[in-house]
Write a protein that binds this DNA or RNA. Structure first.
Lengths: 228, 228
DNA sequence: AAGTGGTCTAGACCACAGA
DNA sequence: CTGTGGTCTAGACCACTTC
């Protein structure tokens, strides 16, 4: 079994399927995922090739902790604030709760190898995590905590991404000059049964973080439909 | 046949497959695409629902023209510069050509409903489009031109996204204040046979454009692998 | 218990690539 | 031409949700 180099062609699908003892459809599904992750690059009618580039973490649901560990960085966290407040109309809609229900509001500075990287504010209904403490949030994965203690596995979400410039407070906390370029991520995540679990606003330094993603062709003919 | 509202549940997969007269696997593939486009929202073990949100254009290969038309805007274009130069080392690597081969360098301001939105610079090997003229670029889809005249259908690409702030020239051309938030998209696109066709740097106004995408769970167990 | 989505199987046909 | 990936079929089993 020789090691493949980036750019090398993988064996034919039928061959691989036979090697692994699975049906070709199953093998293709696996390749689909590898391609989405950027680990292989496929050329229609020609084959699959070992990925050329080290794609950075793309657009999957993953906690800061997991993402940093995957990138070989040491994640840490400083809790800046943590309180309970009423959801209010906007947040209630996103979390599908009543506007007078209470939510945790947790502000944290996330660091990678002790360098400030992201400033995030998480909103989570108090009914989901009633007994949360400051210690729970220190240096452990928030998603792991949600899964293990509260039985909520985050499996999907919708995210918007905007460019922004840091204001005075963000600049100080993130240790960058005033009006530096940054990402603003806003996402609402759901658990395995489709119930909203958290709403997050995260400001991430643009000088240290970038998004890399594979572009694929939206199937022709359907993209034409106007969507109001 | 009644019209479905956002949030309504779709019929069961087996039912839909029977209605359309296709196998369930085929129906599921179609649902996968609709979900990736944000038109449908699926909850595991419960069903598929009409999409809640009007998702903005996500991360598929599409020309500016097509994307704006899909959003109901009228695209237009002003060519700012167009010349031929040597590729140089960096660009040559991305386009997989020799460093002393010639490339078109085309700068264009892209507008939506006459409002400046994106400032883009496209690099394309001269061998691919030898007889390009300024008129070719006026108010017609570049990808369509590539496909129809040169037989190159853009089907995939790799893109990096960074936040940036506009410099003096960009601010004037995009009609925004100095140091406004903007996206910097850098992508290299390939045709149907996997050959690089163009390299693009595009600066897009952050006050008018955002990215919205569906987050999904990278399959567990494989994400743990460190990628150097 | 019945119905659901998620997954897999073992075949099949097509269009296109390269020799 | 042969082999390839792209797509589809008709069935199957499982785990889970809902009644």
């Amino acid at each position: 079994m020789d090691q493949k180099e980036p750019g090398d062609r993988l064996p034919a699908e039928r061959q691989l399927a036979a090697d692994f003892g699975v049906a070709r459809m199953t093998l293709r599904n696996a390749l689909d995922r590898l391609e989405a992750e950027g680990r292989v690059h496929r050329i229609p009618k020609q084959g699959a090739f070992v990925g050329q580039h080290k794609l950075t973490h793309g657009l999957t649901v993953s906690s800061f902790t997991e993402e940093m560990l995957a990138l070989g960085k040491r994640p840490s966290s400083r809790t800046l604030g943590m309180d309970v407040r009423y959801a209010g109309e906007t947040l209630a809609t996103k979390l599908r709760i009543g506007p007078d229900e209470r939510v945790w509001r947790i502000s944290r500075l996330r660091l990678a190898d002790e360098i400030p990287l992201t400033l995030e504010t998480v909103y989570v209904p108090q009914t989901i995590a009633p007994d949360l403490t400051r210690e729970d949030l220190q240096d452990q994965s928030w998603y792991q905590l949600l899964a293990e203690r509260y039985g909520r596995r985050i499996t999907s979400g919708v995210q918007t991404i905007e460019p922004t410039v840091t204001d005075e407070e963000e600049s100080i906390l993130l240790d960058v000059p005033l009006r530096s370029a940054a990402f603003l991520f806003v996402r609402t995540c759901e658990d395995q049964s489709g119930r909203p679990v958290e709403h997050v606003r995260a400001t991430t330094r643009g000088d240290l973080y970038r998004i890399q993603c594979q572009l694929t062709l939206g199937q022709p003919g359907l993209d034409q439909t106007p969507w109001s």
